[in-house]
Design a protein around this nucleic acid. Structure first.
Length: 563
DNA sequence: AGCACAAGCCC
DNA sequence: GTACGGGCTTGTGCTG
């Protein structure tokens, strides 16, 4: 969301927009729908009302550097922005998604070669107020930038990804942010007190067992206690000394009673500071809901990210963590509905690699981890133990991430030779995957980039680096980016289509969250059955893969019930 | 105040 | 000598 506080942002904003006629096309450059506090000459309402016909006109191309922001502001003023939109930030992102940021002044520099000294002026003007002359100049730069970005996207076959997915998605994300999700604050407050009590107990226990008081939150002080005072063995060294992370503590747990209390303390501190005590402050007092921000130009793979708060990392792994999910609820007459892709990245791997064994496993709807286990342990699938299946699961994920035998050994707590053997067996079973990995790496070396199913690009500057560490990192990315990125393509496309369906049917049900391979809706009870079937249908069929795509649906009155 | 770092939450 | 892809937020401890 644009603002987490209740300050009426509208009163601080002036919109300045200029339109041009050019070869039968109308352009409107929304350059300064941003903060201009000092200006006294115009009111936002007046400007917007004059511009309403432009915003709504389908023929006019609306160019701006942050369309999501514009959608949100215009939504407050009950103005619908029609199609034919061009977001320069998103265009620049598609051209190279690995950049640190996409500030307009940097794009002016990169694509228009305006001198940096001029860019300072632009920034100053936006903050201090903007003259008509400056606005004209900036609007012209925007038009020029638009032309160049569009041309470059054409060269790289990015137009359909841009027009059919990323631009329509902007409005979907804006509406998700505006929707927000309802929370039960009383529940959190109660929970906070319980956690506090337990944390107090743990603190005392830890001090007693250590024989001294210290700041448990300080890894530095903790490592003095563990490795000097208690003389526990060092498991792992880090830049600044000895590691005290959860892996290390789990290894040390059998050696001293204090360790497991520290682990529990850490878990509760994390939950309390990051979620339990934080979420109440992020509830909007008008809507009584939490409005996250979704970012469309952050990740280098095409995924979304979420912040303030991040609603893509709400705990699920531990029992205590899952409690936090109970705080997210549906409003009256509605129910939460989740739709998650089953093993989507492995299915995409099957599709991209065309590996016969992997394809068949999915076509036959087999338990994929058990299937892999039967390959790496050379055993019949129906005698695979839970332990073997767990190990196979680590390998299945490891392959997607480009894991080495060293990493696998560390993760499974086994020897290098054993890990090596499993990997060898894996590629014996899945020979097509082996070839696929080599194909992607070769492609990256030759072209300097890799592609997803829908042509999303990821450049790999270091793929031919002399530095082994850099080169190998780039190779892992070359394997992972097409898989992770294609999954992102798929769910984004599904989101756009689902939104279109909801609009067409005038549904009251709303999309609230996206968590990479999962969508969470607030479904209007009378629409539930229809929503469920259409969501499943769209998600499973937006892209045609050579394996079936499977989506699981769940409903509940709170998020914890969606598991 | 701003930074790097370690840590830990998610897919 | 060797660390698995992609994110965000927290607290500590140092520097300015």
């Amino acid at each position: 969301m644009v603002t987490s506080s209740d300050n009426a942002i509208s009163s601080k904003i002036l919109g300045i927009a200029l339109s041009f006629k050019d070869n039968e096309n109308y352009y409107i450059s929304l350059f300064a729908l941003s903060l201009i506090e000092n200006s006294k000459c115009l009111s936002l309402e007046l400007v917007l009302s004059k511009l309403r016909p432009c915003f709504e006109n389908q023929k006019i191309i609306k160019i701006s550097h942050n369309h999501k922001f514009n959608f949100i502001v215009l939504c407050r003023h009950k103005i619908e922005m029609g199609g034919n939109n061009f977001d320069t930030m998103i265009a620049a992102y598609l051209l190279n998604p690995s950049k640190e940021g996409y500030e307009l002044k940097d794009l002016f520099w990169e694509y228009l070669k305006y001198f940096k000294s001029e860019e300072k002026e632009i920034k100053k003007n936006v903050v201090m107020g903007i003259s008509i002359l400056d606005a004209c100049e900036n609007a012209q730069k925007m038009l020029k930038l638009h032309d160049i970005l569009e041309e470059k996207m054409e060269e790289k076959n990015l137009i359909s990804l841009f027009r059919e997915i990323e631009m329509p998605l902007v409005k979907v994300l804006a509406e998700m942010e505006i929707n927000g999700i309802k929370v039960n604050i009383d529940f959190l407050k109660l929970f906070s007190r319980q956690v506090d009590t337990r944390l107090g107990e743990l603190k005392n226990t830890i001090y007693n067992l250590s024989g001294t008081e210290f700041n448990i939150n300080s890894p530095k002080q903790l490592s003095v206690i563990l490795f000097e005072r208690l003389k526990l063995p060092v498991i792992k060294k880090i830049k600044t000394g000895y590691s005290t992370n959860a892996d290390v503590l789990n290894t040390l747990a059998s050696q001293h009673r204090v360790v497991s209390f520290i682990l529990e303390y850490r878990e509760l501190e994390k939950l309390k500071n990051t979620y339990i005590d934080k979420l109440p402050f992020l509830v909007n007092s008008k809507t009584k809901r939490i409005h996250t921000s979704f970012h469309q130009t952050v990740t280098s793979t095409g995924r979304l990210s979420s912040s303030e708060p991040n609603l893509q990392n709400i705990p699920i792994r531990t029992e205590m963590g899952r409690e936090i999910r109970k705080t997210f609820i549906a409003k009256e007459e509605y129910i939460l509905l989740s739709a998650d892709y089953s093993q989507i990245e492995l299915r995409i791997l099957a599709h991209l690699s065309r590996d016969e064994s992997l394809l068949n496993a999915f076509k036959n709807d087999e338990d994929i981890h058990a299937h892999t286990a039967s390959g790496i342990f050379n055993l019949d699938q129906n005698i695979i133990s839970e332990q073997m299946r767990r190990m196979a699961k680590v390998i299945n994920f490891g392959i997607i991430y480009g894991m080495s035998n060293y990493g696998l050994a560390a993760n499974l707590g086994i020897g290098r030779e054993e890990a090596e053997k499993y990997i060898k067996n894996y590629f014996l079973r899945y020979q097509g995957v082996k070839k696929y990995i080599e194909r992607e790496k070769a492609e990256a070396r030759k072209k300097g980039y890799v592609l997803t199913l829908l042509n999303r690009r990821r450049y790999l500057e270091g793929i031919n680096s002399k530095d082994k560490k850099i080169r190998e990192f780039n190779e892992r990315v070359a394997i992972n980016a097409p898989i992770q990125g294609s999954a992102a393509d798929l769910i984004k496309l599904a989101m756009v289509k689902i939104d279109r369906f909801f609009k067409k049917e005038r549904f009251k049900s709303r999309l609230l969250l996206q968590i990479h391979d999962e969508l969470i809706f607030e479904a209007y009870q009378p629409e539930l059955e229809k929503a469920k079937s259409i969501i499943k249908e769209i998600m499973e069929n937006s892209l045609k893969l050579s394996v079936p795509i499977k989506v699981n649906l769940k409903t509940g009155n709170n998020w914890a019930e969606l598991n």
